[in-house]
Nucleic acid binder design. Sequence first.
DNA 1: TTAGGGTTAG
Length: 606
Amino acid sequence: MKKTSFTGNLLFALKNARRWRQNQLTKFHSKTLHARKPPESNDFYSAFSIHTRLLKSSLLTHTTATNHLINRYAKLQEIEHARRLFDELPEPNVVSWTSLMAGYIGVGRPEVALWLYGRMRRSAVLPNEFTLTTAANACSVLADLRVGRGIHAHVEVFGLRGNLVVCSSLVDMYGKCNEVDEARRVFDSMSNKNIVSWTSMITAYAQSGKGKEALHLFWEFDYSRFGFPNHFMLASVVNACSSSGSLVSGRIAHGAVIRYGYDTNDVIASALVDMYAKCGYFNYCEKVFRRIENPSVFPYTSMIVGAAKYGLGMLSLELLEEMIDRGVKPNDVTFLGILHACSHSGLVDDGLAILESMDKKYGIIPDARHYTCVVDMLGRIGQLDKAYELAKSIQVRPEEGALLWGTLLSASRLHGRVEIATEASNWLIKSNQQLSGAYIMLSNAHAMVGDWKNAHGLRVRMKHAGVHKARGCSWIEINNLTYMFYAGDLRCPRRNELLGLLKELEGKMKLKGYMGGIEGLVFVEVEEEGQEEIVSLHSERLALAFGLMSTPKWVTMRIMKNLRICGACHEAFKIISEIVEREFIVRDVNRFHHFKNGSCACRDFW
DNA sequence: TTAGGGTTAG
């Protein structure tokens, strides 16, 4: 069947869903009936008993026999047992090395797997396709591009570029390292492909924020050759829909998920909850979530984060309580969501109590990301000194510090704390992070005290360093069309009408207790910075003006520079779109630029 | 005897 569109592909899938499900059931029963060993035998005690037998018969120096045991312990995540057996092997072969490497990845220590690979390369044992796949997998987990490229080179050297599994793992590795073009080159070079390689490539696009490209690739996926999309692929497609903010595609994908019988699948449900939250339909999030019989930590976290986006911090806290009552253990990301929710709903005391309890009650040690949320929380309510002290007390790597000090910079700018903003900017410049914002901030700080020479000097330094400020923009999809809004764009012939509406909305917002204002956000009227702030204000203020937020002052609904769109903005933009000219409607959204960190912006579109 | 794809934050 010829498929020409995403919709076509999904409709085809829906039509064949029943046949496919029947097939799956048959396969499942046949697998169960013909299974040689019941799964219960594959546990630690059975491994231990084999271990004892090998020990008694002095076979622990026999490579093949011991490999079985290493592999079994590795799969059971009993890595210390596997390691001891390996260390005692007089002649470990490629299987011994690969099994142990895979074992270390399985217990969340991929760096040890790569270290073992290095040791193996220095020994007389040569890697095979299994070893290189495992090594590429370790690089994926670590997002280690440098080592990943080395593994790719070894794939070429050992003549394994034609191996389907090896190449799929390379596609995945490049995708996880955010080198999506490289992933595509490997994908295109593959003469053999299957559903896994296609899923890897679709996922690479979706996870790099290139949702449109992911969906385009999905259009090309040929069901008749590779079979119907499975739950892996559908989860990625749903993720691609949220990444592109495409509600229309998301709903169609949801239809396919239901008909394939995956709607209560934990992982897919998490992706659906996330998609509806990002596309502005929180009611749907709840519907999807409540259909899951026993939600794991993933859907709970998606819901907590979704509620946080809508300023429903109390709901996020209730969900945390609910999951704990049901015996679901929150993880580090759950707490990020909770702290984010507290920060955006002004629940500072709750947030601080949660931070305190993370380690004590749940055994999760807060890291730089959690502290960044707390700095954000304190910064939003103007407790800049506390936020600054906290930021200073945390030891961070430059990448982690970019977010931490960038957050502090935004908060100090918002509250007019020039001295803290200057400290934050200096940290960022010294660490070579977020240079444009830091330079502009420092320049503004000098300008504020009349030091124009230094203010100008910093601008010149910024130019010399090749640092440019991205132009802020927002976009929203309505009826399958994408509407773009640029900061400070004066080309709209009815801009006065639009600005009048914004003014009116701002007035309404003030009545609701909003204390901020343009003067509080921008110290000196600097073109680039002013543009960015105005855009962020548009979305935030519009959302607040519609009275959809529970605690307006702290709710931020930034849609600038990313694709997270809230329901309130959606409504607001619907109204605005009625008064702006058609030239603001953009049909081709394939030219999105993407930042390395996964956030997404559109530049130079016009 | 050893290998690949999906979800949650900012």
